[in-house]
Design a binder for these strands. Structure first.
Lengths: 189, 189
DNA sequence: AATAATAGTAAACGAACGTTCACTTGGCAA
DNA sequence: TTGCCAAGTGAACGTTCGTTTACTATTATT
């Protein structure tokens, strides 16, 4: 087994148990029978930049684990690998989510928001318990039906405007339950 | 200081150092002067579901740290909180990214892909070193200029088609450098 | 075949871990 | 004021940690 496979097992452990394994646990993961073997294996992994050790000497995941590099804009293009290393990094979850307790993901089925760049099949990240501002995209229950629309206020009246000229704005008749505000759109190809 | 503030400090430590702090380190974070105080504090946090301990008795982040719940579709609506607890969860990074080493984020400036649901200001997650398939969205350098377009092959010739009728398809004259394939679109409101 | 270098096992080390016990302090109720 | 409970300190405990040392087995080189 190669060093990459071992580090993959370690990172699998991290994902599964939400912490890095101890040397004894890496023994079980890899099949080695001595801690010394792990000690040297880990040193090789550090040299290969597969994992890291912090100032206290504890094993931690690589800086790139869970972080993606930001390279600028499309128009500026993609620089050479040398400059990529210095690039700023972000964690997508942290970038998108303020409060995990109140955040949820919904899948989009209809085409009522295509003109706002939300296509059928997209995932929307919504947040509950927030008051919608004018122009926000909201997930709402209107007269026993769920939709995603622009939230508009005009003359004190609430209007739900679709992002598609095919459909007409909705004026809630009986009930209006703004369940969540759309915070982000995620589309995977 | 309340228990939530303490747990916030602990999760800040986790984000910063990529591991959970030891009890001694929590002492420094919180200002307590004895490990016993931490021991009881941690037990309270576990009762309050702010952190967890695994089977080996080690402190690990809560299950929801880094995970978002999936609630179904927009049309099906948002269920009551009781059902939310049982919801499936995903980690957005893991969902979107296959290989961190070859993945990058670019910001979109132009409007050449609006009809494909990619608006100016959106972030695109791109992957380097992959061969584009017909219909993929790619970031390419054509005749010394960078653009994002649909990658189309017709009769053995490569065509770069914009997702906006305002613009015309590009037939590369001298150079064509497909730098990356767009894997995902991320839009934050 | 002899040698050196590499990679593994096994055992022992001090240090740090989380836990427990005994004691002290501070605030509230009787 | 007295007594009680909750909350914090401090020290000691056994366990596990990562590291080191010593030795053995395997592989490659001369």
């Amino acid at each position: 087994m190669g060093i990459e496979e071992y580090s993959a097992k370690i990172l699998n452990f991290l994902r599964k148990f939400r912490r890095m394994p101890s040397y004894s646990e890496i023994m079980k993961l890899t099949g080695f029978k001595s801690k010394n073997a792990i000690y040297r294996l880990v040193n090789k992994m550090i040299e290969a930049d597969l994992v890291e050790k912090d100032s206290a000497g504890r094993l931690i995941p690589n800086k790139l684990s869970g972080m993606v590099r930001i390279l600028g804009t499309v128009e500026a293009g993609i620089p050479l690998s040398a400059e990529q290393e210095k690039a700023e990094t972000i964690n997508i979850d942290e970038y998108l989510i303020r409060n995990y307790e109140s955040s949820f993901i919904l899948k989009v089925k209809g085409d009522s928001m295509v003109e706002a760049g939300i296509l059928p099949g997209d995932m929307v990240l919504v947040e509950r318990g927030k008051l919608p501002h004018n122009g926000d995209i909201v997930v709402a229950e209107v007269d026993h039906e769920w939709t995603m629309k622009f939230f508009k206020k005009k003359d004190g009246k609430v209007l739900l405007v679709p992002g598609n000229k095919k459909y007409k704005p909705i004026v809630p008749r009986h009930e209006l339950n703004i369940a969540a505000v759309v915070r982000a759109v995620i589309r995977k190809y």
